[in-house]
Design a protein around this nucleic acid. Sequence first.
DNA 1: ACATTTTTTCCTGGTT
DNA 2: TAACCAGGAAAAAATG
Length: 379
Amino acid sequence: MASSELSLILNNANANLYPSEPQANLLSMTAPMGRPPHLSEMTFSSNNNTMGSWDLVNPQMWSRHNVLEWIGFHVEESRFDASLLNINYCNMDGITLCSMSKETLISMFGSMLGERLHHSLETQKSRYATDLSETCLSESELDLLDNILQNSFPFMHGPSLGPLLETVVVQPSIPSDNSENSYSYFDEYPNQLTPESDHGYDSLTESFQSSHTGSLNLSSPESNSSDSDPEYPEMHYSVSTKNFVKQEPGEPKKRGRGRPPKCQSEGFEHFIQSKKSKHAPRGTHLWEFIRDILIHPEKNQGLMKWEDRRDGVFKFLKSEAVAQLWGQKKKNSSMTYEKLSRAMRYYYKREILERVDGRRLVYKFGKNSTGWRIEETGY
DNA sequence: ACATTTTTTCCTGGTT
DNA sequence: TAACCAGGAAAAAATG
């Protein structure tokens, strides 16, 4: 639960930096070592560019709190998408951090943030070089730290560390004691960004959080039938039923047309509201989101499939699941395939999509869409 | 601040 | 009957 709080913090920070970005997965986490900071202890300052107390302390002396502050500072400074962070990597103290090589940091945080963190860490270390010499660790101590590291991040196995930037995770609705049943999408997508993707576009980094309040099979009916591809395992997507409940029973209502005003949530997001960028990052279009699911066939886990890869014909296999994913990206829990498909139909006119008549859940990319062709993707 | 574009929501009616 | 498709209308949100 505490790790969820950590995640929440970073994700909220990210949500404010990149309003359209999804929340990182909270369910795929393994237990981090030690006691993570409590929400109330967090100081992702609402003051832009304000360093935390870590700046005044030798990195070797940093608490977990300081480390998290420091990471948070650089996440914000570099406008890194915090939802891409594996929160497990953020839960360490200064000693652990200081024992990490540049390569390790890059492995953990990606090249951009990792290098930045490394540079900052080295700078901080040098500032306190005198202190460091006094607190220099013996080889055995370093070995011990190495062990701690290994135990803390068991999923790290050398340079090609495991699911580093864990992103989308679809949780089976049936609780399982086997964590392998949860699987993630686009673990290391920084190298898989679509050629045509706009900078920073990461539509597939959202989590697909399950809820204990109910489960729903979001597979489209058709996809459950003979049309289902054998290569895609049937999954039951567990999604809070509240996502589909737009009205409380008994609430009389009938909204007018058009979209209702967005409710401003209170809490941490509000706390760091001032960090919110004026505009959402580009490249958050629905068709790009759809495209990116398709061009990562090994990871889309049966959400969609190509009907004709070369011609750009594709089909929704789990229409509601895709809609939920899209809704999650847009922070809209009431997204449905019905609405998503309306937006898809608007693309016909703009020739981003072409109509495919007579085939349910089937669409085709049009001449104004990019980034999906084999020549563009390389596969 | 404002104009335009994109998406969301709701709706009616039709098809599979 | 459920799920989907078409597309109008209106409005919010995103974007320039």
